[in-house]
Nucleic acid binder design. Structure first.
Length: 574
RNA sequence: UGGGCCGUCGACUAAUGGUAGGUCAAGUGCCUUUGGAGCACUUUGUCUAGGUUCGAAUCCUAGCGGCCCAGCCA
């Protein structure tokens, strides 16, 4: 051995660092120029508690928490609860649970409603400075005065009210002297601005509604634009990430901060996640739940975090996915296949393998001794030796997958068929000899012979067999319900509609198939809820909370890649 | 149509005036007691036209295309 060979060896390459992005670049720059002095990076995740978090929020969460963490910074969880009519404690609870499930822990937990007093005082200051006024116009009149995309707006007749009158009216708004909708507080900016958000935006509206946290203390509530930037500022957020549609709001965000002379948080906008065959609109997801197109927010077909958790998607896989997709200002739509890849990649490493037959076909091994049972060794995870082995019972009568037998096999079909020998995984080689059919002519039973010399799956004479199929011993099988999920929508873009159609027209009628009588190997009898397995040759499955003792319910998380399905599809086309 | 933002393989995303790279998808082969996984290889891209420059995906100009904004929602 020449020692110099080792000396010349290159050091192992740096671990692939996450791809750069424009927000990280801004953080690096701001740190270098000490824009915020010695302060650490401060971010926040600001959900409105008016629905459940979904996979799109996961992208934002990973960004907010991930980027701050990368630079030794901090992240707050802040509920943007400025609209009491839509917000509920149930959503607050689900959101905190989902953020933790995803794997993140916040530094501060806040609510925009924590700042209602401060926000009110700042509004008074803006009135005193002649920067805000009470407007008596109706909502409809305000809309008419706003102008259009191409025409400037008109000043409200109340725009130049004396300061004292504004102060008085605003205080009386707060005290509850006026009915809902009768007046608003507006910022005095520019009714002719080409940016409609600057045409005297509403800061406060009157809403005699009970708030989930402040109860009946307030009957005026700040609008998003008046609350968000200042909330960031109060928390000394340095980098405030949000989605692209808020770009037009940034001048307003900055305007309030400048007028008030408070901590200069800066907003950065990125493209929201969009996935093929899925909808990520809270309004539409709510409709699916309320009108029972799905079975609740955590229906495994839903893109909600609670849905995909129940479906069996691991949090780590979601995080890997979010890291891989990057962040940019380009609006696009990601292929669902990319998400599924990261789910499979994760589960392949961690999920124990197990045998389960979804659509059972009875196999009788004619030359196997009646009443005999033996136990064969099975590997728990070929990707992970430490997962060990288990025993699986084998006997004369077995179930195999209906798909794994063809009386008249097509070309390239390697599985069981009359006269053909295949391997039963970890069991024996068997050869199909004859079939039993029912009245309809369907095969209901296949009689086979086995070769006792092939125990464990190897032939001493070295003969090969083209395929290996999975099986379950009939006498030992556990009955289970298995739920097979498919895409919730039939179109890549569920929003693509014919005239007059609603998005529900694109719902996939076959998104859920319930298999009532699947047969599982006995080791699965007491599998705990949320446990994840690979059913060999089928896919990844996890235990659903609907499971009852002795009758587990499994959800299919994602199917295995299926080369045979591709081959079949191709030959169909020919 | 006023304003804002954005155009890089089929999809997503790097390259920050100096070799257009990665992941997914697709395809081919190897391997295989999962038609799984893995491994190797391959295909496909800078919206267009000008300009600046030794050199442009990157800077400038003009087009073209897409997304967002007229809630007292966020």
């Amino acid at each position: 051995m020449n020692p110099s060979t080792d000396a010349e060896k290159k050091p192992s390459p740096e671990p692939a660092s996450a791809p750069s992005n424009f927000i990280r670049d801004a953080m690096i720059r701001d740190l270098e120029t000490k824009k915020y002095g010695d302060a650490v990076i401060q971010t926040r995740f600001p959900p409105e508690p008016n629905g459940y978090l979904h996979i799109g929020h996961a992208k934002a969460i990973c960004l907010d928490f991930g980027l701050a963490d990368e630079f030794g910074g901090k992240t707050n969880l802040r509920f943007d609860d400025t609209n009491p009519e839509k917000e509920e404690q149930e959503y607050v609870d689900s959101i905190t649970k989902d953020v933790r499930w995803l794997g993140f822990e916040w530094d501060g937990l806040y609510y925009a409603s924590d700042y209602f007093d401060q926000l009110y005082q700042w509004a008074v200051k803006l009135i005193q400075d002649g920067k805000a006024y009470v407007d008596d116009l109706t909502a409809e009149q305000i809309r008419q005065h706003r102008g259009t995309l191409t025409e400037p707006g008109k000043d409200s007749p109340y725009r130049n009210r004396p300061t004292e009158e504004n102060l008085d009216l605003f205080e009386r708004m707060r005290k509850g002297e006026f009915p809902d909708g009768s007046r608003v507080l507006r910022a005095k900016i520019d009714m002719a601005s080409p940016n409609l958000n600057l045409r005297d935006p509403v800061m406060y509206r009157i809403l005699h509604a009970e708030h989930h946290r402040t109860g009946n203390k307030w009957c005026i509530y700040p609008m998003y634009d008046y609350a968000h930037g200042q909330s960031d500022s109060i928390e000394r957020v340095t980098h405030s990430m949000c989605t692209l549609e808020f770009e037009d709001h940034r001048p307003l965000y900055n305007w309030f901060i400048q007028q008030l002379g408070i901590f200069p948080s800066q907003q950065f906008e990125f493209d929201r996640l969009s996935l093929t065959y899925t909808l990520l609109s809270k309004r539409k997801l709510l409709k699916l739940v309320q009108e029972k197109y799905v079975n609740g927010w955590d229906d495994p077909r839903m893109p909600t975090l609670s849905g995909i958790r129940r479906r069996g998607y691991p949090a780590e896989a979601i995080r890997n996915f979010c890291a891989a997709i990057g962040v940019s200002k380009t609006s696009g739509s990601l292929e669902l296949a990319m998400l599924e890849h990261y789910i499979r990649e994760d589960l392949n490493k961690r999920a124990p393998r197990v045998m389960a037959v979804l659509r059972p076909l009875k196999i009788v091994i004619d030359n196997y001794p009646e009443g005999q049972t033996e136990e064969v060794d099975a590997v728990n995870n070929p990707e992970d030796e430490s997962a060990g082995k288990r025993k699986v019972p084998f006997s004369k009568v077995l179930y195999i997958e209906q798909d794994d037998f063809r009386e008249d096999p097509p070309k390239q079909y390697y599985r069981l068929s009359p006269g053909r020998e295949v391997r039963l995984r970890y069991g024996y080689f068997i050869t199909a000899k004859s079939v039993v059919k029912n009245d309809k002519g369907e095969v209901v039973e296949v009689h086979c012979t086995y070769d006792p010399a092939t125990r464990g799956g190897n032939a001493p004479d070295g003969r090969k067999v083209k395929s290996t199929i999975h099986w379950v011993s009939a006498a030992h099988a556990v009955d289970a319900e298995v739920r097979i999920y498919d895409k919730l929508f039939t179109k890549e873009d569920p929003n693509q509609l014919e005239d007059g159609q609603e998005f529900t027209a694109n719902l996939n009628p076959n998104s859920l198939e319930v298999i009532a009588q699947a047969k599982l190997e006995p080791s699965l009898a007491n599998a705990p809820v949320e446990a994840r397995y690979q059913f060999e040759r089928l896919g990844y499955f996890c235990v659903d909370p609907d499971s009852k003792p002795g009758r587990p319910v499994f959800n299919r998380t994602v199917a295995l890649k299926d080369t045979w399905a591709k081959v079949e599809k191709k030959s169909e086309k020919k």
